[in-house]
Amino acid sequence: MTFFNPQIVSAVLALSIAMSIFWLIRRDYLIQRDGIKWIVIALGVLLYGINPALNDSIGNALGIGYPPIIVVLIALAVTLIKLLIADIERAKLQMSVTRLIQKVAILESRLEESLASSQEKQ
C-alpha cells in the first residue's frame, strides 16, 4: 500500500488549479472572453483529476493501447493550437502598433505645422 492515494493527489492538484483559475477570474485578472474558456478548462481538470479512471474508459472506447498518452496528446495539440492563435493575434497587434506609430508621426507633424502657423499670425 502506497502512502499517497494517486486519486487524492490528482484531485488535490486539480482542485488547486481550478480554484486558482476561479480566483483569477473573480479578481478580474482575466478578461471576460478568456474567463469563460478558463472556467471550461478548470471544470475539465477537476473532472479528470478527481476521476483519473476516466482516462482508461476513453482509451478503451477509442481503442488506444496506452490510455495515459491521451492527456499528453491533448495537451500537445492544445499547446500547438494556442501558439498558432497567439501568432495570429501578435500579427494583428503588430499591425495596430505600426498604424498607430504612423498616425502619431503624421499627427505630430500637423500639430507642429499648425502651431508654427498660429505663431506666425500672432
Binding site: I101, Q102, V104, I106, E108, S109
Partner: peptide, 25 residues
C-alpha cells in the same frame, strides 16, 4: 522640409508607407 518622426523603428517599407499615407491625405 516635412519631417515625420517614428517613435520606434518600423523598417524601410513601413517608413515609406507613412510618407505615402501623409501624401495621400
Amino acid at each position: 522640409v516635412i519631417c515625420l518622426n517614428h517613435m520606434e523603428s518600423l523598417g524601410a517599407w513601413q517608413a515609406t508607407q507613412t510618407g505615402l499615407i501623409y501624401a495621400q491625405t
